[in-house]
Design a protein around this nucleic acid. Sequence first.
DNA 1: CGCGGCTTTGATGTTCATCAAGTAAAGTGG
DNA 2: CCACTTTACTTGATGAACATCAAAGCCGCG
Lengths: 233, 233
Amino acid sequence: MAELQKNTTCQCENCKLRDIFFNHLTHDEIIDICNMRKEYHYADNERIIVQGEKVEKFMYLKEGLVKLYLDNENGADQIISFARPLDFISILSVFSTDTYQYSVSSLVPSSVCVINIEMIKEFATTNPAFTIDLMEKLSLTTDKILHESLELKRLNLRGKLAMVLHMFSTEIFSSTVFELPVTRKEIAEYAGVSTENIIRGMSEFRKDKLIRISGKEIEIIEPDRLKRIASYG
Amino acid sequence: MAELQKNTTCQCENCKLRDIFFNHLTHDEIIDICNMRKEYHYADNERIIVQGEKVEKFMYLKEGLVKLYLDNENGADQIISFARPLDFISILSVFSTDTYQYSVSSLVPSSVCVINIEMIKEFATTNPAFTIDLMEKLSLTTDKILHESLELKRLNLRGKLAMVLHMFSTEIFSSTVFELPVTRKEIAEYAGVSTENIIRGMSEFRKDKLIRISGKEIEIIEPDRLKRIASYG
DNA sequence: CGCGGCTTTGATGTTCATCAAGTAAAGTGG
DNA sequence: CCACTTTACTTGATGAACATCAAAGCCGCG
């Protein structure tokens, strides 16, 4: 269950997001946002955004890790991308449609800041520099998703798996040792292959002494070779 | 029309784009754009944007049909999407990086309007409503590309092919009879399968009396069945 | 006219999905 | 806390889907 934190003291001016996103808002505007925003906390594996619901809020991830995914009727989800702190998790739909085109769920305990969409639109109307920042962020996000999607399309199974492991190691955890925040099934849903073959691929990598596996814990033994496989082979 | 024009040669006020994009520019601003813009004409199969070049211009397609594609070193291009008149062909890179991340080539004779990127940025700074329009258009475009990409990922070969043919029929030509503006190889590069299997798929569809083929000319005989295959089967 | 790219079909092999079956781990309710 | 249920993980066997290779006809173009 999502619990609401009432912010008695405004912390937004210290928020890291400020540097990235609120650069062009005045002190007063930030205070306004801070008073209007709500913060929600989620355990792991909770629904944050439900596909098909009305877009009313502008949301960004403050802490944690989430997946954006398409909820296909037949039960075969497709993971679009993973979002990390400071990413705008409502970014894909918020300026283009009035209902969410995808769902968002937490992979680890996460907190989300929520601002009324009307407030964002008002800032956008009165503050062009803010809007340009917003557009750049939007553009960067979709570029990244698109780039990863094309990359995955190009690669064979081993390449896809190597890319995903490499991504977790470098982009999410900045370490060669980490706890996988996703199931094998979720890796499969992201890579667009079957769960069994993700597992087989991981076993192969283990036998090749490329990685070490114990349950959810992964160690990348040969990062360079993994990267080479991820960029094809 | 009854209105006196300051510049009789300027046609931008009659441009269809005005309704979609320049809604929030003043008469004078449109005249400015009109005087600054350049129009280029391309035969089919010409390079309009070269991957890796510096982003200096804001470009939209006035007439024709183009492909946006990734130029992989090994020679295996990946087509990202097709753009039609009024689409912004520089849209993917223009607000996120300083070099183009993909190439654009004409599939049929096309004309492109080019505006200095600095001018767009200046309008964006002084005219928030314009920027919001721009952001919506950006968002719609990338949403559409992403949606198609996920759809293609989900489908098997017949489904992918059916989707592409259906797309050309409904979105590009609005007719069940049309001249294919792409080679079989290009369909393959878009769908992410081999050229031979696209050809085999088309032969199957022909044998199934789903489509009629004579060279580049295609007739969709059973649009509904094609659509059903495109949404899976 | 000849060259290169596009199209087509057939044959072959590889990759991967699917099915099956079992173990391990993680919730769930009494 | 334990029995029960469900979900995740793993391996093997099988077959289908698809890539690749090969060969030949076709078309447009210099």
